[in-house]
Amino acid sequence: MERLQQFFTNDWAIQRHDLDCVMALLTPSIVAGNLQAADDFLKQKELVAKAVAAPYLAHYWELDDINLPSNAIAVVYLTGMLYAWETDWLIKTLQAAEANPAVCGIVLVIDGPGGHVTRIDVAAAAIKESTKPVATVVAGSMCSAHYWLGTCADRVFAVSQFCTVGSVGAMCEYIGMKNYFTNLGIDIRDIYPDGADLKNEETRALEEGDESLTKSRLEKVHRIFAETVAENLGIAYDPTLELFRGRVFSADEAVAAGYIDQIGSLADAITWVLTEATSRQAAKLYN
């Protein structure tokens, strides 16, 4: 049930309607008391990372295949809502690609609305610190937490002008359970010693209708998110800019504004990574 607990206790960098959709899918199982079905729903998505090598881009290898050709490209798929345990998998996958001498670069294929904030900064740092070229391909949407990650790459492609990117910002969803239990005739009391007056202060404030502590915490997350994106894009962080206030852009608008690099296919991204890797390898020979 750890995944289910993380789902309800994490802060989010996500588009709200996508969160609502998943909540609608989880709620019937939870209301029916079938928590196992809800937990199974959260872990059913397959996490995919493969490797390709030019010129046969239609053939895939496992990243740990001992027969992986040299100058292979690791292709990592980030689709759907991004959960904290998937971010952990992403970090390990990036580390494996970095350590594999047969892998010369990485392509992130992204189609997602965002997700949990937990360890996103660690995954973002792993992308930015890669010694191998990294490209992002937007296959549908790249919003919120996915935009945080995707813009850390060296170059960002979108397969269509109708792809969407942006939604910079953080949120949390507070679900108060006390009234629910009270209506069931269950008396719940939180009792603290006088010396622990700040214990759970944010939750206690929310129960009293005060959102100020939560907003202050989320503002810190938002600023780190926005400043990371600004650094990735090579622009100054301007809190009045629509990008940093949560606006979503179509891919053609984003290219024009400099929020992604170009319209291009997965093959274009792989070719760019291979070319960049070859250029870096050649530069090392003469330095």
Results as ranks from 00 to 15, higher is better:
residue 106 I to R: 15
residue 106 I to T: 15
residue 107 V to E: 14
residue 107 V to L: 15
residue 108 L to H: 05
residue 108 L to S: 14
residue 110 I to Q: 00
residue 110 I to T: 03
residue 111 D to A: 10
residue 112 G to S: 10
residue 113 P to V: 13
residue 114 G to L: 03
residue 114 G to Y: 04
residue 115 G to R: 14
residue 115 G to T: 13
residue 116 H to S: 15
residue 116 H to W: 08
residue 116 H to G: 12
residue 117 V to Q: 11
residue 117 V to S: 11
residue 117 V to D: 08
residue 118 T to A: 15
residue 119 R to K: 14
residue 119 R to M: 12
residue 119 R to P: 01
residue 119 R to N: 15
residue 120 I to G: 01
residue 120 I to K: 00
residue 120 I to S: 04
residue 123 A to W: 04
residue 123 A to E: 00
residue 123 A to F: 07
residue 123 A to L: 02
residue 124 A to G: 04
residue 124 A to I: 06
residue 125 A to R: 13
residue 125 A to I: 08
residue 126 A to Y: 10
residue 126 A to L: 05
residue 127 I to P: 08
residue 128 K to H: 09
residue 128 K to Q: 07
residue 128 K to S: 08
residue 129 E to R: 15
residue 131 T to M: 07
residue 131 T to C: 08
residue 131 T to I: 11
residue 132 K to F: 00
residue 134 V to W: 09
residue 135 A to H: 05
residue 135 A to T: 02
residue 135 A to Y: 06
residue 135 A to F: 07
residue 136 T to V: 10
residue 137 V to T: 04
residue 137 V to G: 06
residue 138 V to G: 12
residue 138 V to M: 11
residue 138 V to P: 10
residue 140 G to C: 12
residue 140 G to R: 08
residue 140 G to F: 10
residue 140 G to D: 14
residue 144 S to F: 02
residue 145 A to N: 04
residue 146 H to K: 05
residue 147 Y to N: 02
residue 147 Y to H: 03
residue 148 W to P: 01
residue 149 L to F: 06
residue 151 T to S: 13
residue 151 T to Q: 05
residue 152 C to L: 01
residue 153 A to N: 02
residue 154 D to G: 10
residue 154 D to A: 02
residue 155 R to F: 13
residue 157 F to H: 02
residue 158 A to H: 08
residue 158 A to E: 09
residue 158 A to K: 07
residue 159 V to L: 09
residue 159 V to R: 12
residue 160 S to C: 08
residue 161 Q to W: 08
residue 161 Q to H: 11
residue 162 F to R: 11
residue 163 C to N: 15
residue 164 T to G: 12
residue 164 T to W: 08
residue 164 T to L: 12
residue 165 V to M: 08
residue 165 V to I: 13
residue 165 V to L: 06
residue 166 G to N: 02
residue 167 S to M: 02
residue 167 S to K: 03
residue 168 V to Y: 00
residue 169 G to D: 00
residue 169 G to V: 03
residue 171 M to W: 06
residue 171 M to D: 04
residue 173 E to F: 14
residue 173 E to C: 13
residue 173 E to T: 14
residue 174 Y to K: 07
residue 174 Y to D: 06
residue 176 G to T: 03
residue 177 M to L: 03
residue 177 M to Y: 00
residue 177 M to P: 00
residue 178 K to P: 03
residue 180 Y to D: 11
residue 181 F to E: 03
residue 181 F to Y: 14
residue 182 T to Y: 06
residue 182 T to C: 10
residue 182 T to R: 11
residue 182 T to K: 15
residue 185 G to S: 01
residue 186 I to S: 04
residue 186 I to W: 10
residue 187 D to V: 05
residue 187 D to R: 04
residue 188 I to R: 06
residue 188 I to C: 09
residue 188 I to E: 09
